[in-house]
Design a protein around this nucleic acid. Structure first.
Length: 104
DNA sequence: CCGTTGACTGTCG
DNA sequence: TCGACAGCCAACG
């Protein structure tokens, strides 16, 4: 057994908890990167939450589209595949999206 | 060890 | 409302 098997790093803990919280976000709601990090127990890692989401496999069933910027603003550019997917999904869950990306 | 890099954020003008 | 900017912090080269 290697030392790695014994040490649950901060990073692994962070990723594990964030993904669990992500899976629990109900349809029709959104959370900011920062809020998701806080729910997972990490206060100042909004950017790391973003990085984690970015690295998710394309075929993941996790609701990554419900994670947006503070105040409910979509951060992914509208002219990218992921950006379009996010807008489509949020719209299908009842959100109106202003040109600037703000959810209503 | 150090500078860069982000699906970020709050403050300021 | 919008851009610039300073914090943020692990990962990378």
């Amino acid at each position: 057994m290697s030392e790695h098997d014994l040490v649950y790093t901060q990073t692994e803990e962070f990723q594990h908890r964030v993904l669990i919280c992500l899976a629990n976000i109900p349809s029709g709601r959104w959370v900011s990167y920062q809020q998701l990090g806080q729910q997972a127990g990490f206060e100042r890692r909004a950017r790391h939450v973003a990085k984690l989401l970015k690295n998710l496999p394309d075929d993941t069933k996790l609701p990554w589209h419900r994670v947006v910027g503070a105040g409910g603003v979509i951060k992914l550019p509208a002219d990218t595949p992921a950006g379009k997917t996010q807008r489509e999904r949020l719209a299908s869950e009842g959100w109106l999206i202003s040109p600037s990306g703000r959810l209503r």
